[in-house]
Amino acid sequence: MRSFQQINQVFTMEWVVKIGGSLFPEHAAALLESLEGTGAAVVCGGGAFADMVRYHDRKFGFSDTANHEAAIMCMDITGRLISDLVESAVPVRTVTDCREAIKRGLTPVILPSGLLRYTDPAEHSWRVTSDSLSLMIAHMLKAKLLIATDVDGIYTERPPASDAKLINDISAKDLLSFGETSVDEALPELLIELKSDCYVVNGKYPSRVLSILRAGASECVCTVIRGD
């Protein structure tokens, strides 16, 4: 397996869209279909499959590595199933296949277990989910990360609190103190480490995702998390 540095030398792209497991299957399929022709690559969250691993871990106490690897394989499962529903999408396991899919005008859905098997520097714990792993893949590809989930972004309070307000822009350093949000706990730390930004947007509205891909976050309902 080639290192991150070797991979970066042969392929770059502008966007990786992480489609959250909370959107599986209908909203995920609709969003994936809308990405045709954008040149973006997709990574899918593990959704209910990963939740099942977490549930059984509480009962049996699997090792951190077993949980981590199983959760990544759950990302493979959702990606494989969603790509089967969308004619313009194709499941890929390598950077080369990702590049070829985009050349053919298709949307590559990265099944990450093979890609991360020997190049995964992530902490093995439930603090790290598909959000952080998608950021690692985006960094590998020198791409920006957009996280599409089932809420509009990061809030001052966890929805559905009546006084929760959407935060349009926040530093990863400030987000560290928020605890549980719509992104995983390790993501702000990784954004700071990689000096990277990411966007969090409601994937139930594909037009919002497309607006960010085309023009950035200006006048879009979303949250930008800055890693500066």
Rank of each mutant, 00 (worst) to 15 (best):
L23N: 03
L35H: 08
L31Q: 11
T38P: 07
T223Y: 05
V209F: 10
A66P: 00
N8T: 12
L141F: 10
D64Y: 01
V17D: 00
M52I: 07
L146A: 06
H139C: 01
S177T: 10
E36N: 15
L32H: 08
P160Q: 04
G105P: 00
R93G: 07
D174W: 11
K103S: 11
A29D: 14
I7W: 00
C198M: 15
A122F: 13
V53M: 15
R99G: 06
I154S: 01
G46H: 05
Q9A: 15
D163P: 00
A71H: 01
G46I: 09
D131R: 02
V43L: 13
R226Q: 14
A89R: 07
Q5F: 06
E193S: 12
D131F: 02
A89E: 05
G45M: 10
E157A: 06
K142Y: 02
Y199A: 13
I7N: 04
L23A: 04
L35Y: 03
L146I: 14
V43K: 09
D51Q: 13
V90T: 14
D152M: 08
K59Q: 10
S113K: 06
Y199D: 06
E33L: 15
A164R: 00
A138S: 11
I170L: 13
V16D: 09
G114W: 14
V90E: 14
L35M: 12
S218V: 13
S182W: 05
A215Y: 01
R226M: 11
Y199N: 04
L141H: 00
G20T: 07
E87F: 15
C44I: 11
R54N: 12
F11G: 05
N168S: 12
D97L: 00
I147D: 05
N8Y: 01
V224Q: 06
T94C: 01
L116P: 04
S177C: 13
T223C: 03
R99P: 00
S182T: 11
S177M: 13
L115E: 05
D174A: 14
A50Y: 02
G216H: 05
W126K: 04
P91M: 13
L146S: 02
I77E: 10
E69T: 08
L210A: 05
S207E: 15
S130C: 05
V200E: 02
V92I: 05
Y199Q: 01
L81C: 10
G20N: 12
E185Q: 03
R54P: 01
D197S: 13
G105W: 03
I137P: 03
M73T: 11
F178D: 04
A41C: 13
S88V: 09
S171A: 07
S3N: 04
A122L: 15
A41N: 09
